[in-house]
Amino acid sequence: MNKQTPFSVCGESLSAPMHICGFFDSREQQYDVIIPYILEGLDANDKVINILEGNRHGEHCRCLADNGISITEKLVSGQLEVLASENTYIEGGKFAADKMYAMLENTLLSASRAGYESVRACGDMVWALKNLPGTDELLEYEAKLNLLTPQHAVSLICMYDINSFSQNTLTDILLTHPYVIKDGKISKNQHYVEPLELLSSISNSRSGALKS
């Protein structure tokens, strides 16, 4: 396990590595949580990565700038990256769990080589609502992140709009995150399932479906 590094979210002091699902019912609630998290990271010289739909980048950067972040400076230095879902999660018009896992792993290794002691990442998962090929690998991907995060000083917040995703999907997503943000508060997730156990269950379910 990588060394633990401090960070705070929702007013709580925590330690990375940590994989968190954020359930939000509005854009405002989402930003109330992630803006202080991002600001703290930039002040602490953490690497900060935001992934969201490309058509939201202008709004997102304006929101960061309105909160005192020197966008151009941070982007040029490489400390802050604002990436598009279209170039990451669903590059080429499809999702592939192993490919995205490898992309994130390489990003974390690059951040470490660049001298960053910790990484903070927020990913808006709205891309999964497009039902592009491979979207059914989302649960597998989220589970595998719990094998990746302990190897790095990283905190990941996967952001889900509770008004857009089905209750069944949100219930499944809960299985893959040790911590959950809901109603602006973070807590240990009682529904979390260890990744190897969950991945085995997913594999068995797929095998059963193929046989039937």
Rank of each mutant, 00 (worst) to 15 (best):
I71M: 08
I71C: 03
I71S: 02
T72I: 09
T72E: 15
T72V: 09
E73P: 00
E73I: 01
K74S: 07
K74G: 01
K74N: 12
L75D: 04
L75I: 06
V76W: 05
V76M: 09
V76R: 10
S77K: 10
S77A: 11
G78H: 13
Q79K: 09
L80D: 02
L80S: 03
E81T: 08
E81D: 10
V82D: 02
V82W: 04
A84M: 03
A84N: 13
S85G: 00
N87M: 11
I90W: 01
I90E: 05
I90H: 00
E91R: 14
E91A: 12
G92I: 11
G92D: 06
G92V: 07
K94P: 00
F95R: 01
A96I: 12
A96T: 09
A97W: 09
D98M: 04
D98K: 12
D98E: 15
D98R: 10
K99E: 14
M100E: 14
Y101M: 11
A102P: 00
L104C: 07
L104K: 11
L104R: 10
E105V: 01
N106A: 14
N106F: 03
T107P: 00
L108N: 03
S110Q: 14
S110A: 13
A111P: 07
A114C: 06
A114R: 15
G115M: 06
Y116H: 08
Y116P: 03
Y116D: 04
E117V: 02
E117T: 11
S118D: 00
S118I: 01
R120V: 02
R120I: 03
A121E: 13
C122P: 01
G123S: 14
